[in-house]
C-alpha cells in the first residue's frame, strides 16, 4: 500500500459557481486533469470556503447569489490569501468588467462560453504561478 505522505499533493482548485450544470462540467474537466476540486455556490460564504479548502487556485464566477465575484476578489486581495491565483469566469464580457477585474488584481479573466481546453490551460498556468 502506498504511503500517502510520500505522494505529491494533488493541486487543489476551488470552483465558486452557482450554476450547477456548468459546475458539473468544470468539475469533470478539472478532476480529469488529476486536480482535487471543491465547489461552492454561495457568494456570501465564499471566503469561508476559501479558508476551509485552502485551494491553490480559485475559479470564480462573477454573478453569484449574495455577493458578486468582484467583491469576493477584492476581499481576497485584502486578506490573508492576497496572492491566491484567481481565474474569473463571466458571461459579461464587457470591457469595463475586464478592467474592473484587472484593477482588483485578477490573474485571468475568461468569458463564457469558453473552450474546455482554454479553461484547463488557464488553470494549469495559474497552478504553475501559485505560491508554494
Amino acid at each position: 500500500m502506498n504511503d500517502p505522505s510520500t505522494q505529491p499533493r494533488r493541486p487543489r482548485v476551488l470552483l465558486i459557481e452557482d450554476e450547477p450544470n456548468i459546475a458539473t462540467a468544470i468539475v469533470f474537466l478539472l478532476q480529469r486533469e488529476g486536480w482535487q476540486v471543491s465547489t461552492h455556490s454561495d457568494g456570501v460564504t465564499a471566503l469561508d470556503a476559501v479558508a476551509r479548502h485552502a485551494p491553490d487556485v480559485v475559479v470564480l464566477d462573477v454573478m453569484l447569489p449574495g455577493r458578486s465575484g468582484f467583491d469576493i476578489l477584492a476581499a481576497l486581495r485584502g486578506g490573508e490569501r492576497a496572492d491566491l491565483p484567481v481565474l474569473m469566469l463571466t458571461a459579461k464580457g464587457q470591457t469595463k468588467d475586464r478592467e474592473r477585474a484587472a484593477a482588483l488584481g485578477v490573474n485571468r479573466f475568461m468569458t463564457k462560453p469558453f473552450a474546455n481546453r482554454e479553461l484547463i490551460d488557464a488553470v494549469r498556468a495559474l497552478l504553475a504561478e501559485a505560491p508554494a
Binding site: 450544470n21 456548468i22 458539473t24 462540467a25 468544470i26 474537466l29 463564457k112 462560453p113 474546455n116
Partner: peptide, 11 residues
Amino acid sequence: LLSTVSVVRST
C-alpha cells in the same frame, strides 16, 4: 443565455 450556451458547449 451565455451561461446556458457555456454549459451546452462544455458538456
